[in-house]
Amino acid sequence: MPNFSRRAVLLQIGASGLAAVTPGAALAQNRYAALDTQPWSYLDGSEARFLASMADVLIPEDDFPSASQAGVVDFIDLQLAGPYGQGAGLFLEGPFADGTPEQGWQTAHTPASLIRNGIARLEDGGTRLVDLDANDRSAFVERLSKGEGFDLGDVPVQTLFDEIWALVKEGYFSDPIYGGNKDYAGWEMIGFPGAHAYYTDHVDKNAPFPAPPKGIAHVPGTGRSADTARPLRAQTAREEG
């Protein structure tokens, strides 16, 4: 019996989404539901709830899935557990100083610790993003995007917002082998046909190119990518709820 439930997380974040109205129907479409028995690799439940709530403000549900519905939180979880989250490609030798915006990343945090500490401090006062209604969630994200009215110690607010927003977009639009872009949701939305690319005969034609997307690990005949993120999830599974 898992000591944790993605399904439960989803029900809680439903305040702004379809899940609140028709939980059964929405859950059937949701990545969380399919992965319900899978433990997180890096996040804990409250971090997942925060990120799902914020991600769904940034990319809400309309005719196409919201960020969390497309597996973005699962993507972020794996990214933070992996080399990127742990600081690969990031020069972290000191001394550290507050730079100008033009000087870029100057915190000693890795992306994973930046996000963990950032969320902890944002929710330190007891109010959780997941408990706010849709309007208040949007207002919160609006303020966060401008860096207004937050003191998060050594977590630069702008860097935190930029990092989460970048991860949300990556999770929505990257190849499904990384756990997001579930069933090519992001690619279907914009009309990107994927990784199998050969356009010599079409590039000069003024016409749509309605090929269904195919990812790197596309399974022929299914409209889906193989779930190549599963081994990484198993490898990094945490006993935590």
Partner: peptide, 9 residues
């Protein structure tokens, strides 16, 4: 080689 090289992430 494609498609593995066509990995934007």
């Amino acid at each position: 080689g494609a498609p593995e090289e066509h990995d934007e992430l």
